[in-house]
Amino acid sequence: MHEQFKKQPFFIMNRPSIIGQNNVSRFIVLCIVALCLADALPAYCQQPNEIRSGRSGITYAKERRSRRGSEYKSHRYSAIDRSAHPGIWTLGAVVGASYNWQTRDAGYAYDMTFNGGWGANAGLTATYKALDWLSIRADVVFTQKNYSMQRMHPELIDSKIHSDYMCHYLQLPVMADWTFGSEDVKSHIYTGAYAAAWMGGNVNRKTVFQNDEKRTRYTFTPEDNRIDGGLVGGVGVSWDPVPYLRIGAEALFYYSMSNTVRKQAVMNDTRYNNTVVIGISTKYIF
């Protein structure tokens, strides 16, 4: 396997895979898998051991929902039921890691490769429960969209040069939160769009005729497009351990529709960001 593929996660473009040869097809497959899991897993996790076999999670979830009337008065379910009804707000924090790669064309520079880069992701998240099964979610998150460029031309005196770009974005995703599952353990599917601003960054670079790597603050050029926007989708699970508190884990995919380079009148140089964010969240249920 080529060296560059070893460092990259499975969903990166150009890496042979049994679930498809490009990002979009992998995203479709992941969504379908997520839908199936979202529908069945939470209910399956909650059913007693003695009845775990012989019935599907979906069937059990229906039965459990029908039994809720008799359990409604218990302390445990009073808080959870409160969050299970429309009109409920949640506010919390999300923190995690990001992995970004760029979709761009190196042209005929066969020695030039672009690799993805890991970064940080943190911010605030709020949801409003519009229906039993649908919430509106809006976040304000700081996300690093990092990537690196490498050149290994044999004719260069120093044949390995690289630039590691760390790009800091402030993102505002707005998503529909499709909720599945039972009262205390839920799964979520997110679909939506986002707007973002490229706030700054750094570059770790070892360039030609330079022996040492040097870190500098990224200087914006007139051709940098600092406004970003695109689609976002993903999956998550949440658990309400006590009244008023929800803990969750999620994976979101930000698919940028904005070229990071301003469009030139003649030569359009396209460089799109693709960012996977994985994180955990803690939310207060109002």
Partner: peptide, 28 residues
Amino acid sequence: MKKQLLYIAACVLLVLTGCRQKGDIYVD
């Protein structure tokens, strides 16, 4: 209705992913 709406939303997202502009080919 929930699932139908979700499938529609997912399909809309997938269709929109095709809206990225193609870059010009570099000429050596």
